[in-house]
């Protein structure tokens, strides 16, 4: 029983972590290449979820919805980059925080205008319904396993894109010296738009996949955004590898902490007090991990920039 529970929670943590990685990868790329803090990244997550839910409801196909989420989030990202974000690259972080905070307000209200105040629901595609038995006697939903697989696949694809393709080479060059690659004839503003749209599409994908597990509603992006920031700060801003390690660390710490901390405390100080303190500590646990890591490595685990 106990091991089955731990295996199940470990998988939940992995699924959560993989989803965080999709968010964090975009954020960390955008920061690494353009030096921009984008608080509105959570809005692309929301846009992806709404696009998926709306298209899936209209056509009856989750897969069309998933494609729509990528397109919608990338289009929203490209549009916002060209109209607003482009003007913020040279500004200090304070201006970026405020402007993207304003974008959250605008995007959330726009979505509420379009879809109303009530949450939408998205069904798990029939091909991925049901549960499988894992070794150790755990019944685990196929859909969550599919999310884990999809996230790992995107991770590998992203690695290949950045390490092996011409676009990836330009992105890496943009990270280390943006003026130089501009001087070498790369169209830097198009590159920035592509990176921003790519990051937005990843966030949209995450939103669409998680939309089938939770309800799709305005404001769903912000809690995930905060966690994605924790992830990239732990991993080292600008590093995809750091984002991956950080995401899994945060996902697993958070999920296991909620199960194990109250139990461990119950053994130490008795069940009555442990419930309260354990729950409080568990919800703080990832922030404690982050503070510890930054206290010893102020630039995160795998800092891309010195």
């Amino acid at each position: 029983m106990q091991t089955a529970l731990i295996v199940e929670q470990l998988l939940n943590g992995l699924q959560f972590g993989v989803m965080l990685f999709l968010m964090a990868a975009g954020l960390t790329l955008i920061f690494g290449v353009m030096g921009l803090i984008n608080l509105a990244h959570g809005s692309f997550y929301m846009v992806g979820a709404f696009a998926c839910a709306a298209v899936a409801a209209a056509t009856g196909s989750f897969w069309l919805g998933l494609a729509a989420s990528l397109v919608a989030a990338a289009a929203a990202g490209a549009l916002i980059e060209v109209t607003v974000i482009r003007r913020l690259y040279g500004r200090d972080h304070l201006d970026q925080v405020l402007a993207t905070f304003a974008l959250i307000l605008i995007l959330s209200e726009s979505v509420r205008w379009l879809f109303g105040d009530f949450p939408l629901y998205l069904n798990i595609p029939p091909q991925l319904g049901g549960a499988v038995a894992l070794p150790g006697g755990v019944q685990y939903p196929v859909y969550r396993l599919a999310i884990i697989a999809a996230g790992l696949l995107v991770g590998v694809a992203l690695y290949a894109l950045i390490a092996r393709t011409r676009l990836g080479m330009r992105i890496r060059a943009g990270e280390s010296d943006r003026e130089m690659i501009g001087a070498l004839g790369v169209d830097i503003s198009t590159l920035y738009t592509i990176v921003f749209a790519l990051g937005a599409a990843l966030a949209g994908l995450a939103g669409a996949m998680v939309g089938a597990l939770q309800s799709v509603q305005v404001g769903m992006g912000e809690p995930v955004l905060i966690l994605a920031f924790v992830v990239i700060v732990i991993g080292g801003i600008g590093s995809i590898k750091g984002a991956f390690v950080g995401a899994l660390l945060v996902g697993v710490t958070d999920t296991l902490g909620r199960i194990l901390l109250p139990q461990l405390l119950a053994a130490a100080i008795g069940p009555a007090q442990a419930a309260g303190i354990g729950a409080a500590l568990a919800s703080m646990s990832i922030y404690i991990v982050m503070a510890l890591i930054l206290a010893f490595r102020p630039k995160g685990l795998y800092s891309a920039q010195g």
Binding site: A102, L105, I106
Partner: peptide
Amino acid sequence: QFFLGFILLGVVL
């Protein structure tokens, strides 16, 4: 909040 967002954006830009 929609309009507040635009006003804030205008102030920053």
